[in-house]
Write a protein that binds this DNA or RNA. Sequence first.
DNA 1: CACAAAAGAAACGCTTGCGTAACGATCGGC
DNA 2: GCCGATCGTTACGCAAGCGTTTCTTTTGTG
Lengths: 116, 116
Amino acid sequence: MPVELTPSQALGLWHSVTLDQVRVDSRDLTLRQMAILLQIYLVPPPHTVRGLAATLGVTKPVITRALDTMGALGLVDRVRDERDRRNVVIKRTVEGALYLEKFGDLIINQGRNLHL
Amino acid sequence: MPVELTPSQALGLWHSVTLDQVRVDSRDLTLRQMAILLQIYLVPPPHTVRGLAATLGVTKPVITRALDTMGALGLVDRVRDERDRRNVVIKRTVEGALYLEKFGDLIINQGRNLHL
DNA sequence: CACAAAAGAAACGCTTGCGTAACGATCGGC
DNA sequence: GCCGATCGTTACGCAAGCGTTTCTTTTGTG
């Protein structure tokens, strides 16, 4: 089920959501961090550092650093893979799920309020 | 004309657009910079540093720095207001308009490709 | 004309993210 | 058991953004 948007709607939606996010959220995730977070929560696990790096097209330290930051914020968690102890499996958290749920609501509401 | 989205559609759209943006765009604007850019191009002029700061809920130096960066990228331009020379009027550029046009296309296409 | 107010920029020290390169831990094949 | 390959992290120097404070220019008002 596709979403059909006009150029005005597309940019207007992005505008209002971005604006609201800047005004409200002190955490201020970077674009990369946001992409990683959404990937973790919207794509079926397991997620690894290597996998995320490949998906985003960035180097592994970028992922490590983003996980450090978002881990400190409680948005994600890291667990060593016991079957292959070289791997780290990235886990979702309740707080992270809540964060994205609120963010989704923000998008929906701003979309609803679009009057162009 | 509102845009009605389900939670899956809202986050899915954000996911795919963010992912694509990370992969493709080396400029890597911050959330604040993006909000400023969209404000300049979607809201009727004139735009001033002070006005943008108030709209975004940030301090003036944040706006000055963002304009420095985006000015260097050619996305916006600054012109002294001749009627009150204390003010600076922020101008749109062809390159900035093109940038947002491409970004809008990206959103539209990712929305169209959403199959949940 | 003096002087406070206003707008934007510059200065300051700090934090955070970046890319590259090096590192320790772990695995699998021989 | 060794040894190259793989995985994630750490280290390093650098660039960029942050908040606060200070400065410069310009305005308008007494």
